[in-house]
Design a protein around this nucleic acid. Sequence first.
DNA 1: TATTGTTATACTCTATAACTATA
DNA 2: TATAGTTATAGAGTATAACAATA
Lengths: 143, 143
Amino acid sequence: MKSATDAGLGFAAALVRMSHLVQHVFSDVSRERDITPQQAQLLCVLTSGDAIGMTDLSRLLHLEKPSLTGLVDRAERRGFVRRVRDGADRRACRVELTPEGRELAVRVHEEIVGRLEAMAGDLPGEDLLRVADTLTGLLARTG
Amino acid sequence: MKSATDAGLGFAAALVRMSHLVQHVFSDVSRERDITPQQAQLLCVLTSGDAIGMTDLSRLLHLEKPSLTGLVDRAERRGFVRRVRDGADRRACRVELTPEGRELAVRVHEEIVGRLEAMAGDLPGEDLLRVADTLTGLLARTG
DNA sequence: TATTGTTATACTCTATAACTATA
DNA sequence: TATAGTTATAGAGTATAACAATA
């Protein structure tokens, strides 16, 4: 009943260590695809939806806008994303994946998910479902 | 029974999103303490144990050795850590926290843990224990 | 006036290659 | 020869301040 706090890690400590592990997976997969982890994260965010403005994107990635400008510049230079002008607001642009960027994003995402699930391989599926449910609930209220 | 995959996130996707959330907490807390997230991570790793050599530290932080040299240089310049010569091997040095570094590390760690637990505030404690247990089991086998 | 995004600047982070010193 | 760590160098990531263009 109290095993987590007695013999294992507390809730927050477990999340922190798991977060580092996930970051390492991001680093390894990015390295193999010859992109940076930040570019991988940008690609993953853009896979989820439609084209998105710089301001919203900077909020999603937790970056100041000038930092995002540079990140998008470099990703655009490499042909992964492109800026499209916003028809309604002539100040704004929206960022979207190019076909090559989308293909890369899908591969990176699949590889990351695959490695994480492989790590969980021999744990009971029921436990994993419960973890996913609990974390989903937490994320729904927080971010 | 299948709610996680039907209505919520899969296991890996939940871990990835949780990881980003943890990174944001690290960023926010680091910012408030006027250090970089990488310095915060270094401090946290050093809190856990004794002085540690550069090679082991680079493995723990998933950094190439020259990257670690710079990170330790900057942390040392700010007075958070110090290099001590290894008595047995004259090539080696071990990195340890200064008193000021340890104080900062404890505060940063407490703040991060506090925010993560606050986020989980209204979730059933039993669920959190199960999550911590499952993740601890996964971490024990992985890294 | 407020908002969208960029430019200018300075620093940190990171990797690869080459190096020194010790084992 | 192999290992521990650093130096040299280049590029990427990040933030703050100041700016341009549009709303």
